[in-house]
Design a protein around this nucleic acid. Structure first.
Lengths: 116, 116
DNA sequence: AAAAGATACCTTGTATTGCAAGGTACTATT
DNA sequence: AATAGTACCTTGCAATACAAGGTATCTTTT
């Protein structure tokens, strides 16, 4: 993905960015991930997370390994691939740029109010 | 729209937020609007803007008036209604919250790196 | 050892959003 | 009266988000 393309994409899928960032923290199985996102206020249902992880897997951004659970069926622990880590960093930059872009709409509005 | 609902919605439609904020600056016709967004780096095509404005109109967030153009057919100048201004302010708060949420994913990641 | 409960995983169908492409109408210029 | 430019708008497709519903595994209870 090109840089401008990434920027456009991020505008649409903040959730994908959030999931990728949450995975930078370390591997997680879906319920873990939902917990990490929920803790910062991003409530995301299962039905959103599973397809998203499958997409990221299909595109080579994440890998997973099976691990037994102490209490229930085995879990799929997802982690970022090398390609995924690179994406995470590119996304971080796109996010900084996006924040600036969006916030500068307010800035120019203030300029206007102050008649500059 | 409720506050949490707005937050979830903003996650999905940053563009709507951007358009609403751009209108806080003052009335504009679609090409104006596209210019304001483009100037801060948000490239948005016509085919996105027209339906969006129609939606905002249908929901009572914006109004418009016709004005003759010095060079071409008349323009629809859009501006925020009272309801739209209120939305703009609620959106601004949701945006601040969203930025914090998303950024705190990185913070907890840093904590982890520093072993706190 | 059956049944019930809890925890995983996943899919399907619908709504929403974003946009490229294509279309209509008005105005100004040649 | 033909062309070019500027405005408006719609249609159809792709991607994203998610509620609802489904299957399988493992543990606990009866």
């Amino acid at each position: 993905m090109g840089s401008g393309e990434l920027f456009q994409h991020l505008r649409r899928s903040l959730l994908e960015y959030s999931v990728v960032q949450a995975l930078v923290e370390g591997e997680a199985y879906p319920a873990d991930l939902i917990g990490r996102l929920g803790r910062v206020g991003l409530q995301v249902p299962e039905g959103t997370v599973y397809p998203l992880l499958n997409r990221l897997k299909a595109d080579g951004y994440v890998e997973y390994r099976w691990e037994e659970s102490p209490s229930g069926p085995p879990r799929k622990y997802y982690s970022l691939s090398a390609k995924g880590l690179k994406l995470a960093e590119e996304y971080r930059q796109a996010w900084e740029k996006l924040k600036k872009s969006v916030d500068s709409l307010n800035t120019s509005q203030n300029k206007h109010e102050k008649n500059l």
